[in-house]
Design a protein around this nucleic acid. Structure first.
Lengths: 217, 217
DNA sequence: GAAGTAAGCGGACCACGGTCCGTTTAAAGT
DNA sequence: ACTTTAAACGGACCGTGGTCCGCTTACTTC
């Protein structure tokens, strides 16, 4: 197994201080019956292993179920559908990135000025998405669901808030959407991996876009 | 039937003068055997009718096939997969929009200055996408395919070219991607139809984005 | 107009996502 | 400990997207 999935907190780990947002970072573990929580962990672990071994294309709900030693219905009960399972895997991996921009050290974290945090945010997200592009692409089946995924709405509120703090020009919420759109995983993957565009150029465009709205580094 | 699908040119209509791009607008009719071309038209017509009658969700490959009086395999042979069929339907409906910005009257068409054409482009595309959002959303299953759809790459080259002509600041190609991303159908649908954002605000953001890059109306 | 051939055709077939419902079981009350 | 109940379980079942392959047919060549 490539990623042995560190502890995998069944109950949400306590004693974490949120930095600047009311939105819960990862979400959805909630209160589960003991067997349900155990199976949830087993399923995520099995899915992660299968993903590493066989790739996202071969990750069928039945294979995950049997690898975890549970019935197929259980997978659907827990994650609603295949996309839900993939998103759960992603949210779990997003935790590190979230920690970095919510409570990590400068330039991403809260101890840097908002403008600096914004400039650092784009390249970091692009790197993160590059690392997980297979999973991300596989999870993008319903185009509308993108906007309701916890990780994505956290990113949006975060960027919107920073834009306000940095006194960016224009409409902060829409600008946040535009900024996030310009570094969206499928686009970046298309440009870099398929059209051969150098990543620096994308970083540059990110900085430029911010600068045009008055967010000076 | 709501949209009786005007003539539906089997062979690509001749004698059309391209305005500013080498890229073929709609694409893919190519040279088909007589029966194949006939079936293609039958299938598109049947699909269009089913779409209007029952909605995209109930548009199954088998229902389209039998409504057109052909076998299921024929649908797949012609359109590759379900997404291919939906994209073909979309490309057909895109023709009017393409005519408007490639050869229509100002402010979209070639007789207006590039800056004016750019400002007019966004709102027009948003309106067009709003009209066809069901089909567009249904066709967005593979996130990467978006960028290779003929209609989309035509839009991209068009905007890139106009940005160059208008002497926009920054990286024209990436800016074109960002601009198009900011009016992408799923995003716009999410914001207007689900979050209740007024469409003017989106138009405003489009103009603002252009202005920030030196494209004055 | 006969023969040859590449393309098109169609429906049986398969795999996977998703649902359903009878059975089991964890937990709360007594 | 015993009862109760809502939640979880699991696997049979279904519909649909997609493939496959033997048969048919439109075009070409002579």
């Amino acid at each position: 197994m490539t990623a042995p999935l560190p502890p995998m907190p069944g109950p949400p780990d306590p004693g974490e201080t949120r930095t600047s947002l009311t939105l819960a970072p990862v979400g959805e573990p909630e209160l589960l019956r003991a067997d349900a929580a155990r199976n949830r962990a087993l399923l995520l672990e099995a899915a992660s292993r299968l993903l590493a071994d066989c790739g996202a294309a071969d990750l069928t709900m039945e294979s995950v179920a049997s690898a975890a030693g549970v019935g197929k219905g259980t997978v659907f009960r827990r994650f609603k559908d295949r996309t839900g399972l993939l998103i759960a895997l992603l949210d779990h991996r997003e935790a590190l990135l979230q920690a970095a921009f919510l409570s990590g050290p400068p330039p991403m974290g809260p101890d840097a000025p908002a403008a600096e945090r914004l400039h650092a945010f784009g390249p970091a997200v692009m790197r993160h998405e590059h690392d997980h592009h297979e999973l991300i692409l596989a999870s993008r089946t319903d185009p509308l669901r993108t906007y309701t995924v916890p990780a994505q709405s956290l990113r949006l509120s975060h960027v919107t808030l920073l834009l306000r703090q940095a006194r960016a020009a224009g409409d902060p919420e829409l600008l946040a959407h535009t900024l996030l759109g310009s570094i969206d995983a499928p686009l970046v993957h298309h440009l870099t991996c398929e059209s051969g565009m150098p990543p620096d150029r994308l970083d540059q465009a990110w900085h430029d876009l911010l600068t045009r709205y008055g967010v000076e580094r």
